[in-house]
Design a binder for these strands. Sequence first.
DNA 1: CTGAAAGCGCTTACAG
DNA 2: CTGAAAGCGCTTACAG
Lengths: 337, 337
Amino acid sequence: MTKVTIYDIAREANVSTAMVSRVINGSGPVKQEKREKILEIINKYGYVPNALARSLFKKETKMLGIILPDISNSFFLQIYQEAEKRALELGYNIILCNSLSDYSLESIFLKSLVEKQVDGIIFLGGRVNDCNLKHRYIEEMEEIKKKVPIVTINNIYDEASTINIVTDEEKGFKDLIKFIAEKGYKKVGMILGKKGISSTETKKEYFEKYIGKFNLETNDEWIVYSGFSINAGIKGAEKLLSSKTLPEVIMCINDVVAMGVIRRLHQVGLKVPDDIKVTGFDDIELAKIFIPSLTTVSQNYKEIGKIVINAFINRNELYSNNKIIVETKLICRESCN
Amino acid sequence: MTKVTIYDIAREANVSTAMVSRVINGSGPVKQEKREKILEIINKYGYVPNALARSLFKKETKMLGIILPDISNSFFLQIYQEAEKRALELGYNIILCNSLSDYSLESIFLKSLVEKQVDGIIFLGGRVNDCNLKHRYIEEMEEIKKKVPIVTINNIYDEASTINIVTDEEKGFKDLIKFIAEKGYKKVGMILGKKGISSTETKKEYFEKYIGKFNLETNDEWIVYSGFSINAGIKGAEKLLSSKTLPEVIMCINDVVAMGVIRRLHQVGLKVPDDIKVTGFDDIELAKIFIPSLTTVSQNYKEIGKIVINAFINRNELYSNNKIIVETKLICRESCN
DNA sequence: CTGAAAGCGCTTACAG
DNA sequence: CTGAAAGCGCTTACAG
């Protein structure tokens, strides 16, 4: 696997490496005749420039790193996909790191990405959504962002990132509860995620706030903490099913949990939406395919993915402060009809 | 964003850069006293070595590239996840490239990965599953594999890769049809993927072969070409539903298509498995969650993911030829009961 | 145990 | 339009 270098090309073409570099990059002037000769030799050997050497000089690798809990989680998946699309347009490659929300693993990835000189780090989930985080995890990110810009989404520690993209979950949640109220339902329960995780705590807050505002009923037995997976939905539903009475609508922390809930309800003979209604959150790809299709709140993945990449390009210019807000949207389907 | 280099550390510690390099890498002997001093200064500045410079010298980047059609396709997703897990153990990072099976895009990614000097390329789907491929796409990969080892999965052009991992789909398919026959069903149809794609063509071949061997019935109307997505399943089911009679069992090219088929059957009032049976292929994560859970054939993702990475490490040693076969396994669940 | 020096493969002022 | 040379930040023989 010997590789030909710019020296080999230069020697054979009887020119300097500077010349070769210029034709490769289309920078500076080169006599047509020489250009052709050089191109011919490059082709002959299938010469490919070494990006390592170039990056070492240019201090730019055209690589971005993304650390997220789990790419199989559709929320992260869809952001990833949109981000990769945008990155491709701009000539960037992406190093994907699945952290499983393991903070030590996040640290390992962060270090590795810095070493590899990525042009930016996208950091989702895990520590930046932990309401009871040890401060050193934030300090670590504060140190790193001095070297590499960090973009986060729904991060609750502003100081941990260069730019933080925030989705307007409150608006989405409010619309959802308003919709439930307008449908005429009164009794509403909620399957939350893990305690102490920001998406759980903020949604709990919104839940209580808007249940009140729209004069709906709930009670402690109907508010259950669980997790963020299908299985968490199944477990959550089990717990809720053991309460003395049942609500008319079960709101869920996200779509995947909603699917688990529906699966469990189905097993005990409760049909959705005939016998009981369920709502999700996020509007993942599967939400419209699932039987029944899910009433949910859409995160604007296209927008998020685009901003997440653009943030590295147009830093300083586009964004006056380090917070960017992205809209959400109510989506009505079968599961809450 | 000025970064401190090994020179800065060396100067402040009053030693040579060689010394600093040695303590960073734990290579060569260093007096305890100096080591401590150096470590202290490294810590003080939060110095992180530049992997670009190191890789340039070492000719090793500890980065792997993976090109696949679509990470949201669970088959690729699960291979990816297992591969990343194994890569992490060995200290590699992964650059993920979603090609959408666009051959030009595959070329762009291939070139980019070679430039970035990845230590290996994993290439799935797209061109290497195209039965009517223009030869230049294979030639391109033959050129590339002279520079960087390429590992593929179920690639039909052996010369395009350094190592090709092949899953024993024939065995799995045979077991599946045998199971159907033993259940006492006679009439079997099949929703295939896109025509001219190897997974479609080989499964069609196995279908016809084993339908014959086990004395089952089929007919042209029950064999429909479609695609590989949920929507393809929906479309495929529509087509099959328009035939004069219906089979008892509908086999599907993969699990996702099976889900689309079940969704469509459900819409016209056919319950699975009560009214009609459906089988999938691949055993994706969702297969056991879906209602009804899917009878399918499991690809051994753990094994595949491990081998896909190990192949780069133990090349030459472990594998005598460039083909590695991985077993498949029949999984019986609700959808074909 | 330690350091000077060469080299990895590029790019870009700079001088001509 | 062209080339010599320095430099990007490391690592490793090699010599001491």
